[in-house]
């Protein structure tokens, strides 16, 4: 009898030099809890924080980036994330400001366009909305959107840089970093687990 040998999925938060990369410190634990709770994906119980300036980032084909502050890659960071994406990895960037005119959104989208190519509005029929949980209306709205905070918009689409039909870079103005940034034990107070779309992102990254 051979036990599970393949490397577990390790949730990776990317550390970059320009801003507050660690603005959602409990999000990784919460998403790891959800992945373990709903799926049989072998998942490491703790995430890792890896500098984008280190080639170690290539060991983590799904990298999560967030922040509020102006966002810029250094040359080394740009080279490493380009390599990560070119080799088949995926980057998920969430605007923690929930504001399309905010500095993070503007600068991060500029940086995405400069590094990977111009992002498009991701159709709400993309498999990322149906690969595990079904989200027929596209990306689930967050409480911050519904409360009118930030830019007072409910964003209809996420943005993405695609290679063929595969998402290379997923960009969100939904502020999932606030929505999912709580201790996993507090899920019991929610009628519907709001991290379910996070599970879809992980499942998508592992299967597409």
């Amino acid at each position: 009898m051979v036990g599970p040998l393949m490397t577990e999925f390790i949730f990776c938060t990317g550390r970059y030099e320009s801003g507050d990369w660690d603005s959602a410190p409990t999000l990784p634990a919460n998403l790891i809890d959800s992945v373990a709770r709903y799926t049989e994906i072998a998942t490491a119980p703790a995430g890792v924080i890896v500098p984008l300036s280190s080639e170690r980032i290539l060991e983590y084909p799904l990298v999560y980036l967030t922040g509020h502050m102006p966002f810029r890659f250094t040359e080394v960071e740009r080279k490493n994330v380009q390599k990560l994406v070119d080799r088949g990895g995926m980057v998920f960037i969430d605007d923690h400001n929930h504001d399309i005119d905010g500095v993070f959104s503007k600068t991060a989208l500029e940086e995405v366009a400069r590094t990977f190519g111009k992002p498009i509005d991701l159709p709400n029929t993309n498999p990322i909305y149906s690969c595990f949980f079904k989200f027929e209306d596209g990306p689930p709205a967050t409480s911050h959107e519904l409360n009118g905070w930030g830019d007072n918009l409910v964003h209809k689409n996420l943005k993405a840089v695609m290679k063929g039909d595969r998402i290379q870079v997923l960009f969100s103005n939904k502020d999932y970093s606030s929505e999912w940034n709580y201790h996993p034990d507090n899920k019991r107070f929610s009628a519907v687990d709001n991290t379910r779309f996070g599970v879809n992102i992980v499942v998508y990254a592992l299967t597409r």
Partner: peptide, 12 residues
């Protein structure tokens, strides 16, 4: 295969 990096990258 299981949902893991090996399955994903073999398919890729």
């Amino acid at each position: 295969g299981d949902a893991n990096w090996e399955s994903k990258f073999v398919v890729a």
